[in-house]
């Protein structure tokens, strides 16, 4: 299992690009952090999620 935005999900072995597409995220509107490190957009295709990974997917919202 991979913990994504606080939820344990069955996303191991997918690349970041595959997960984002499958889950319905626009890759150009999010930033991804994996185990505390930012995953650059250029590496979404090459970065494969593993069991036990902790992933945060964030975007901009209104704020002050």
């Amino acid at each position: 299992m991979v913990k994504i935005n606080g939820k344990n999900l069955d996303a191991a072995k997918k690349t970041v690009a595959e997960y984002l597409t499958d889950a319905g995220f626009d890759p150009l509107r999010v930033a991804v952090e994996r185990n505390g490190e930012i995953v650059p957009r250029a590496l979404y295709d090459k970065t494969r999620l593993c069991d036990g990974d902790v992933v945060e997917i964030v975007g901009f919202v209104g704020g002050g």
């Binding site: 935005n5 319905g24 995220f25 964030v58 975007g59 901009f60 919202v61 209104g62």
Partner: peptide, 17 residues
């Protein structure tokens, strides 16, 4: 313009950008 950063939701139709 200021913005905040939060966990993204899947399938969001509208993006502030």
């Amino acid at each position: 313009v200021t913005l905040a950063v939060r966990r993204a939701n899947t399938g969001e139709q509208e993006n502030i950008l």
